[in-house]
Simulated assay, not measured.
Amino acid sequence: MYVILEGIDRVGKSTQIELLKKEFKDAIFTKEPGGTEFGKKIREIVLYEKEISPIAEIFLFLADRNEHIQKVIKPNIDRLIISDRGFVSGIAYAKVKSNLSIEKLLKLNLTAMEDIVPDKIILIKIDESELKKRMHIQELDSIEKRGIEYLLEVQKIMEETIKKLSIQYLLIDAKLTIEEINEKIVDFIKKV
């Protein structure tokens, strides 16, 4: 089973991934972008190349996505694979940056993924007041510096994208305790 855990920065994805590693010891854990050596190079280019166009950036991430499908997902398709982010994030960030439609971005992503989609998607959602609280806890990265409105717009597109798909999904409120969120995620993954 292939599962992706989605959410904007500060929702607690990293914490949940660490807890899931303890619960599902035999699972394959990966991430997008950067789940392969090629993906790490793509990530470096995108993070540090200032003059890259939005469409060029989309195609770099699509290249990473295909490499991830080839090197991580296909070889392990019979195992439990849990990915920290996936194509839903890719679509949301690309839509905000390029203003291409969700439908067009979905088509491009499905091509890159060779129509191999997750069996389940989990989205941890956060509201504005909680996000404001969490933004003051530690130094902001380059994405977080784009602001709360930007992040909430990305989150809105993530949810819209998920609801357009025929994939089982779970929406979780980030204000729940770490333990409550973990319990919901584990139950959802185990549910047949």
Rank of each mutant, 00 (worst) to 15 (best):
M1Q: 10
Y2Q: 04
V3L: 07
E6A: 11
G7V: 09
R10W: 06
G12I: 03
S14V: 09
Q16T: 07
Q16I: 08
E18K: 14
L19P: 06
E23Y: 10
K25D: 13
K25P: 15
A27C: 11
A27E: 11
A27K: 06
I28H: 08
K31Y: 09
E32S: 07
I45A: 05
Y48K: 15
K50E: 12
E51F: 12
L62F: 06
A63T: 05
I69P: 00
K74R: 13
I77M: 07
I77C: 01
R79F: 10
I82T: 02
I82C: 04
S83R: 03
S89R: 00
S98P: 14
S101G: 10
L108A: 01
L110T: 08
T111W: 09
T111P: 04
I116H: 08
K120Q: 01
K120E: 00
K120D: 03
E128G: 06
E130K: 10
K132M: 06
H136I: 14
Q138N: 15
L140G: 03
S142C: 14
S142G: 09
E149F: 11
Y150G: 08
V154C: 05
I157G: 03
M158F: 09
Q168E: 12
L171P: 07
D173Q: 11
L176S: 03
E180H: 01
I181W: 00
K190F: 08
K191S: 15
